[in-house]
Design a protein around this nucleic acid. Sequence first.
RNA 1: GGGCCCGUAGCUCAGCGGUAGAGCAGCGGACUUUUAAUCCGUGGGUCCUGGGUUCGAAUCCCAGCGGGCUCACCA
Length: 531
Amino acid sequence: MRRDTSASSPPTWRELPLLIELNEQQRQRLDKAQALREQGIDPYPPHSHRTHTAEEALARFTEIESTLETEHDPETITVAGRVTAIRDMGKSVFAHIRDGSGAIQIYLRRNVVGEDALAHFKRFIDLGDFIEADGNLFRTRTGEVTVEVKAFRLLAKAINPPPEKWHGLQDVETRYRQRYADLMANEVTRRIFVIRANAIRAIRRFLDERGFLEVETPVLQPLYGGAAARPFTTHYHALDQTFYLRIADELYLKRLLVGGYERVYEISKDFRNEGIDARHSPEFTMLEFYMAYADYHDVMELVEEMLVYVAEQALGTTKLTYAGHEIDLTPPWPRVSLRQALLDATGIDYREVTDQRELYERAKALGADVEPTTVWPRIIDELMKTFVRPNLIQPTFLVDYPVELSPLAKRSPNDPNIAERFQPFIAGMEVGNAFTELNDPMDQLDRFLAQARDRAAGDLEAMPIDDDYINALMYGMPPTGGFGLGIDRLIMLLTDQQNIREVILFPHLRSKPTPILAGLPTPDTPTGDDA
RNA sequence: GGGCCCGUAGCUCAGCGGUAGAGCAGCGGACUUUUAAUCCGUGGGUCCUGGGUUCGAAUCCCAGCGGGCUCACCA
């Protein structure tokens, strides 16, 4: 059946090509919407007339209650929101509505709202619908501030019934695929993303107040770099060239220091085409900042101060609970060299075990997951992850890494095999990465060449040579300290979540047809354009 | 990618070879201060999909799809 889409009224659901079987409740609700239209009532009216949020209404009554001469606030207010509970008492009805600020109870009594209106409410308003209600605030016998309703209007008819009221939405897959339903049903989920927003705002404020310039650098890049990871690859039609989604911001931000900005930062999505697990999301949010005339010691101090500030702003405390651990962010955090940490945990002093074979034998003997072919720096990395990282529960800076693990970091003046690099660990989780930036263009070129050799040897994550970056360094970059922070992991810490997908609004899942679109055209359906 | 586990009503979950269940939500009824309202009655299922075993499969077996945890890889 074809329908003239220029018709003046919207279609009834029976006219649309819904290939799914609607369930009984969906059909009932669609029929209610249609019945309302036939009465001349728009189930999706364009305007609302709210005068008070739930929070404002509750605050108002608390404030004026003691001055009232009557039981009810004489001023009529209008509240609006989603109906989350209905308790039908016969000649009166209690309901709760929730808006973005909170929830408020409304009360409809037949002799106040009128017999017809009460019947209309009972007949046409369902859980999940958006309504607005005009009325007067009062306090019920049980003490709850409530709006006694004089009139109400439907603002938006909900066709899908909301999830179960007591248990909320539990199914993890549905919670991720239909985050809207999760947010609607679960207060905990709503709270996580408020904390996330507050934390990111606090980071911006902290850096802005210290003279950092927020910048935006390319997400689509002709050459990726700044980290060890496989990229997402795409074809750029207009330039007829392969481009990559960035895996890090680093090399572009440091070009800006060459240009003369002293302090820059960027908060942005990075993309790494690698596995998904509880701590890794291929699309994730990164903060990177760079400050000229600073080294990694200066950066450590700034990072301590920043994370304390962020926790205070987002949570109101610097003490967190994560996976049962009590964590105190109060600075200063211990600085432990990687060499010392490994020595304490494994008895191996890597400066004295420079032979790869010997290091392998000793790591293997300790039970580390290494192979005879594992290269020396990777064995160090593995030892750190297995024997050191899990024990770094309280905030700790692990400092001074082998140069081979840090191709963009400056060598220590005391030991050319050591890079001035640190990583903060909290609750056994690596939350960032930082170093005194390498600004010697020829040393940088040499490190790139070493990466290129690893790459040729089959390491897909080794960095490609960025010769334009070398050219930038040849103009001169001031001594600089830089820092990268995984925002998602920080939010996991702040919200005591063990899975990164719990702090990402719409995490990636394998595509599955939604019930509504089953059988209808999707972006994957060939259209003749690009196919 | 490997191992283990899960998929039953709109939602939360039982059932685990013998007629498909409960609570919430829905529908009908009673109740004018309830708040997981209460009380009476009642409709609703491709038991993820496809094969197989069996007199008989939601249940057992195989394959697939989707998801979770975990290991590997990685930040």
